[in-house]
């Protein structure tokens, strides 16, 4: 494990890595900026296929924050189900402006309807990451 982390000189052993999956560039930028301000390392993907490409690489990811509505053949819920099956330790947070608050988003650790409170979400993500041990 250690050699994978150290193989990229910039990688920090102490930082937690969050993958933000969102096709609206300004929203993605806003969320990523808030998380980076809190000291997290943030990776960005425009759609589910980009997210899978990142997760299939050696880049470590601790939590995926994904919108439900994504371009392409896979939406955020399908991505979440796939990730829950294949990477059960990964934390998953789902957001959507289309789903009712009481929608079953079983694969996710948390669901936030849009519009959301950015600081609230960032705080929740930090809490979820705090549950992880590396």
């Amino acid at each position: 494990m250690l050699d994978k982390v150290l193989s990229f000189p910039a990688a920090s052993l102490h930082s937690r890595n969050v993958l933000v999956v969102e096709d609206q560039v300004l929203t993605r930028m806003m969320v990523a900026d808030e998380l980076r301000r809190r000291g997290l390392k943030v990776l960005e993907a425009q759609n589910a296929h980009e997210a899978i490409a990142v997760l299939q690489s050696q880049v470590p990811v601790d939590l995926v924050f994904t919108d439900v509505r994504l371009p392409g053949s896979m939406d955020g819920l399908a991505l979440s189900r796939l990730l829950r099956e294949t990477l059960p330790e990964l934390k998953i947070v789902v957001t959507s402006g289309d789903l009712p608050v009481d929608t079953d988003v079983d694969p996710a650790d948390a669901f936030f309807p849009k519009p959301y409170d950015l600081r609230g979400i960032a705080g929740h993500i930090e809490e979820l990451l705090g549950e992880l041990r590396r």
């Binding site: 990229f8 910039a10 390392k41 990776l43 960005e44 993907a45 425009q46 980009e50 490409a53 990142v54 690489s57 880049v59």
Partner: peptide, 14 residues
């Protein structure tokens, strides 16, 4: 290309 973007962005941030 997402991998290239992620790596380049990280490099520039560093």
């Amino acid at each position: 290309e997402v991998i290239a973007r992620v790596m380049l962005a990280e490099y520039l941030r560093d």
